[in-house]
């Protein structure tokens, strides 16, 4: 929240002396801590993935979006972990499943992949710009390849907790059923220091 406030304070200050150009600093996002682990489509389940993966690193070297990287945790050292700070898992890309030699990631076609739910998006509303900065955003909905997110006016909704101050501002509604966990929303979320929408993994991958 501190950094969020700072990011808000910076442009105001810059606008006061009006546009000397320049760039606001960007904070490199830390890897999201997920309650449930996330594994690539085709892995069938986390158990299958962990037992079969030999940490050869072929999938990591192939991943064009840098979604896969070697794990640093002791339990799964050097096995790939997934995260969306640098890119997101494109539905049409199946490179990791093509190179995996052990069946940790079984072969999937792009058509199959678009139906495999490796996780689902979770909304962290306190970080979401309509709440934290009172601005419209909608970056998650705009980038969702499965149209699983809709932006809806806050005034039309019934919140259990506190809603945004402005009833005309729009907030994301996630259709978990259509979400396959590709991570585009998490990747493109502008919220700092962490994404206001992120992917929770599915220990056993299921299909549409």
């Amino acid at each position: 929240m501190m950094i969020g406030a700072l990011a808000l304070a910076l442009p105001m200050e810059a606008l006061a002396q009006k546009a000397e150009g320049g760039l606001v600093p960007i904070h490199i996002r830390e890897q999201t801590r997920r309650n449930l682990p996330l594994v690539p489509a085709g892995s069938l389940s986390v158990d299958n993935f962990i037992t079969r993966c030999t940490a050869c690193g072929l999938c990591i070297s192939k991943c064009p979006e840098n979604v896969l990287r070697p794990s640093t945790s002791l339990a799964s050292l050097l096995q790939p972990t997934m995260s969306f700070e640098r890119g997101w898992c494109r539905p049409e890309c199946t490179l990791c499943s093509e190179v995996c030699p052990t069946g940790a990631i079984t072969r999937v076609t792009p058509e199959q992949k678009t139906a495999i739910r490796i996780g689902h998006a979770v909304w962290m509303k306190d970080f979401c710009l309509p709440y934290s900065e009172g601005t419209d955003c909608g970056n998650c909905a705009r980038h969702c390849p499965g149209a699983a997110i809709k932006m809806v006016r806050a005034g039309d909704l019934e919140f259990t907790g506190k809603g945004p101050a402005d009833p005309m501002i729009r907030v994301p509604l996630i259709d978990e059923n259509r979400c396959i966990g590709c991570g585009a929303c998490e990747h493109y979320c502008p919220s700092e220091p962490m994404a206001a929408i992120y992917i929770e993994g599915h220990p056993r991958q299921n299909e549409h």
Partner: peptide
């Protein structure tokens, strides 16, 4: 001319 900058969301 850079009058639009800095972008509050970090865009160049």
């Amino acid at each position: 001319c850079q009058y639009c900058m800095p972008c509050p969301y970090g865009l160049d």
